[in-house]
């Protein structure tokens, strides 16, 4: 089981379901255990939302997504040319505080860390590159 799935979309919220469908089709046709698909979709949803709203500040831009399977892991690379920003440096939200005092910012990346097995960031050739890994259950 191998191969890659790569595509580029405009940085727009309405493309999030399009990307989710594409990734789901690829993973299902590759025979990946469907139980992990929603987690991967969630992580991609949250990362794309961050890039669109914070990275590009809702201005025009593109997002590149590469999905690959190997060594028992689904690996997703998400790239954009918005100003360099490492979302992993965001402070984790304190989910123990009262609702009224809780900021909603940072929740997305918090969810990404929780549902993925590994998340890494690098700034490479003028691009933000976020790599997500999810182990495929036996």
């Amino acid at each position: 089981m191998a191969g890659r799935f790569a595509f580029t979309v405009d940085a727009a919220i309405e493309n999030i379901p399009v990307v989710a469908d594409g990734i789901e089709d690829y993973l299902v046709s590759a025979g990946v255990n469907p139980a992990i698909v929603p987690d991967i979709e969630l992580a991609v949803d949250e990362v794309m939302t961050n890039i669109i709203t914070h990275g590009f500040r809702r201005q025009a831009g593109t997002i590149g997504i590469t999905c690959s399977i190997g060594e028992g892991v689904v690996r997703i690379e998400i790239r954009d040319r918005a100003p360099a920003f490492n979302p992993l440096l965001l402070k984790e939200p304190d989910i123990s505080v009262k609702l009224e005092d809780r900021p909603v910012g940072g929740l997305g990346i918090y969810l990404v860390r929780k549902v993925m097995d590994a998340v890494s960031y690098e700034y490479r050739d003028g691009e933000n590159v976020l790599t997500l890994e999810k182990k495929i259950p036996e």
Binding site: P38, T49, V104, L107, L111
Partner: peptide, 16 residues
Amino acid sequence: CQYLSSGGIRVFLAYQ
């Protein structure tokens, strides 16, 4: 509804 992300939670919170 089979899927939810933080965007949905924000909307729930706003209307709560």
